[in-house]
Design a protein around this nucleic acid. Structure first.
Ligand SMILES: [Mn+2]
Ligand SMILES: [Mn+2]
Ligand SMILES: [Mn+2]
Ligand SMILES: [Mn+2]
Lengths: 218, 218
DNA sequence: AATAATATTTAGACAAAACTAAATATTTGT
DNA sequence: ACAAATATTTAGTTTTGTCTAAATATTATT
């Protein structure tokens, strides 16, 4: 597969939410930042190649084979993201662009060894699961911190309230996107939480907890 | 620069031996495994872009700017080779093909951090020097082991005699391409050498030493 | 059900990078 | 110096991936 074909396959995969859903030409065009006519051309070719199933005017979905390619690309992308954060001190928001390039490097040994070098990580820096070599992975869900049960942990992936006061509060308490947070204990009385974040334990109100999104493995 | 342009720039650089020599169309074609007519087209374009100086029927050389690009590519290529060997347990002869792809990844931060992660290596697994960010590097030369002075060290890069008996000898004594060898002492009487190779010290005859090529930084 | 709005495809063009075959320039050998 | 051999360029195609403009299909609205 060419670099371009691979990016289309990934786009179709992500727009179909990993399921084998039909996606529209326009949706792919928007995702890829190209024109719908270019998408038509490409999905025709991918269909010829047996990677996708294209029904004119109806949309496109990945074939079995296409799914495999997509999962392999997602695996590479996310492993590289872990590498960049863990080994090269990249931050959460800097990795995507570079991983978008690295995912296209062709070498099976490279990925196997990278996986090993990283200690076989299960999730990427955004809390998204890393498919195994065979394409298996755990689903993850996004939940508000105050909704998740005591004992579980997840990666902070977003805020519901993005007002300056709230963001300032997070900053002051050293809570950042990409941090792993575990719920240690819940206070029945006011719904406040004791959480662990980067080795330190802190106490936060229910109001804070209901404005922070975590990604947890289901 | 596109991937293709970058590979042409590197080819011109290497054929010109790093000096600003004029290189023939045919030579580039052979190196790149393309046809001379394709080379003509490309070097015209590189000249337009100010990367190279092309004189019809006379050949092509890199401009100042082209040299800079070439050195940056060589730097990336060799740093990735070190990464593959040091961190991912690739062997000497497996790295080139993968580095050929990785060298084209666009991210300044990626290379700076990779350099740091690897401890700012000076040479790649083949004993070739790694240019600094500014493009400076030490020249290396290839010499027979018995020609180099006591106290110096280098990387084993080839054999003069490639007969099975000699290769078998190297195997038995665990001397392999890519190994770092230091000359500890020379025996005046028979010209035999005491060398260090991978933490162990061994004694080899002058005849062995005169059939092993080392790459040393001049 | 007819019309308007939107989505999608088709047709035709373009740039990048390669190729083959033919033309032309340079170098070599006598 | 001239012919033969070799190197290089030119001309004309091809493939991949993109685009714009126009045509056609689908969906939404009245
Ligand atoms: Mn990509
Ligand atoms: Mn990610
Ligand atoms: Mn390359
Ligand atoms: Mn090398």
């Amino acid at each position: 597969m060419t670099l371009s074909e691979e990016d289309y396959i990934k786009a179709i995969y992500h727009l179909g939410k990993g399921e084998n859903t039909m996606v529209s030409t326009n949706a792919v065009a928007e995702q890829m930042e190209t024109k719908p006519s270019s998408v038509t051309d490409m999905v025709k070719k991918l269909s010829e190649k047996g990677v996708a199933n294209y029904k004119p005017y109806k949309g496109v979905s990945l074939s079995e084979y296409g799914q495999k390619i997509a999962l392999s690309l997602v695996r590479k992308h996310r492993l590289w993201e872990v590498f960049l954060v863990e080994k090269l001190d990249f931050s959460w928001d800097e990795v995507h662009e570079v991983a978008e390039q690295l995912e296209h490097i062709k070498s099976e040994k490279l990925i196997d060894q990278l996986d090993k070098h990283l200690g076989y990580p299960q999730v990427d820096p955004h809390g998204d699961p890393i498919p195994s070599k065979k394409g298996e992975f755990k689903k993850t869900i996004k939940k508000l911190l105050h909704e998740i049960p005591t004992g579980t942990s997840g990666i902070c992936v977003g805020v519901k309230d993005s007002s300056p006061p709230f963001l300032k509060f997070l900053d002051k308490n050293k809570i950042a996107l990409g941090d792993t947070i575990s719920v240690l204990e819940k206070e029945e009385f006011d719904g406040s939480l004791y959480i662990r974040i980067k080795e330190s334990k802190i106490h936060i109100s229910n109001q804070i907890a209901s404005n922070l999104y975590l990604k947890i493995t289901a």
